[in-house]
């Protein structure tokens, strides 16, 4: 018996979400009265996981797994879950985890609840709270199978540090033959991704044109934030499509979302509502975004943003 957690890494280093799902797994293990086993794939240093509630690490090292493949990664987790007699498997809401979890669910004949935002409210029936209707509601779901898979929404549970240490075991699962082959990757490696970012700085049509994004990037830089945009902005080709957030774009669940020159249409809000704190900068006090935001500045982005950058720089310098 145990709770299995997939702790994702990138170039050998754990992603922030890995520590969050480990913390979540610990909460589930406490509820079920069992221990946490983490699976790592080509991660370098795994001992750090002990500080987030992991009791045991199954360390997989295999160059065939250097690039992500949903089917082979799901097979690794399936074998790990069976070996450990796992009652629950915890994954994140990264694009990779969302890709592999349904495959794993079939392999383990396990019920799967995605976009879960809190620790289970009860062990029997196993009940979790998830978002539904593009963040306009929550839904309590029971998982009735012997093994349960929980996909934890990013930045929802938080990272919980404990003092502990994890034992380590090499794990060498057999890999299936795969039918989907990676040909080429086109990724911005030097930028914070929207999925991982704690802060997202997003701008809309109010910015008038692509030439004005310098200040948005600078603001993001100062905050260590990812940049995003509204749909018309990417449709107009002012910004790359990968930056488009909202119902039809990428979902955002950051701690802080700063919306500049974005009106706050329902389809935009649907995708960013899961962010904890929202700040809006808009010339129009009637813009719907003011109803959804926590903090607002009625003002011209071309005046507010440069000032904000200067003031934040000063703030960072004095808090460093």
């Amino acid at each position: 018996m145990s709770v299995l957690v997939y702790t994702e890494s990138e170039k050998g280093k754990f992603k922030k979400t890995a520590l969050e799902v480990a913390s979540y797994a610990k909460a589930v293990a406490n509820l079920l009265g069992t221990t946490v086993t983490a699976v790592t794939i080509n991660a370098n240093e795994t001992s750090e996981l002990g500080n987030y509630g992991v009791d045991k690490v199954l360390k997989v090292s295999n160059s065939a797994l250097d690039t992500f493949n949903a089917k082979s990664y799901a097979a690794v987790l399936e074998q790990a879950a069976k070996n450990e007699g796992a009652e629950a498997v915890i994954v994140s809401s990264s694009a990779d985890s969302k890709y592999l979890a349904p495959l794993l669910a079939i392999g383990l004949e396990a019920g799967y609840a995605s976009n879960v935002v809190e620790a289970p409210s009860s062990a029997s029936p196993f009940t979790v709270k998830r978002t539904a209707f593009t963040n306009k509601a929550f839904n309590f779901t029971t998982i009735n199978t012997a093994i349960k898979i929980v996909g934890v929404s990013n930045n929802s549970f938080g990272i919980v540090e404990t003092s502990g240490s994890a034992s380590m075991e090499e794990f060498a699962p057999s890999l299936p033959s795969v039918g989907v082959h990676l040909e080429a990757v086109d990724k911005a490696s030097d930028k914070v991704t929207i999925a991982d970012a704690e802060i997202v700085v997003s701008a809309g049509r109010g910015l008038k044109g692509p030439e004005n994004w310098g200040m948005i990037e600078e603001l993001a830089d100062v905050l260590g934030a990812a940049t995003a945009c509204s749909k018309p902005v990417s449709d107009l080709g002012w910004r790359p499509h990968g930056e488009h957030v909202g119902q039809t774009g990428k979902p955002v669940a950051s701690n802080l979302y700063i919306a500049i020159g974005i009106s706050g249409a329902i389809q935009h809000l649907a995708g960013i509502n899961a962010s904890k704190v929202k700040v809006v900068v808009n010339t129009d006090p009637e813009a719907p975004f003011f109803k959804a935001a926590d903090y607002g500045v009625v003002g011209d982005a071309f005046e507010v943003v440069p000032q904000l950058i200067e003031k934040l720089k000063a703030f960072k310098a004095s808090n460093a």
């Binding site: 989907v180 990724k187 991982d196 990968g242």
Partner: peptide, 10 residues
């Protein structure tokens, strides 16, 4: 689409 860009597969 992936978290930080896109990839092509066959």
């Amino acid at each position: 689409e992936i978290d930080s860009g896109k990839e092509t597969v066959s």
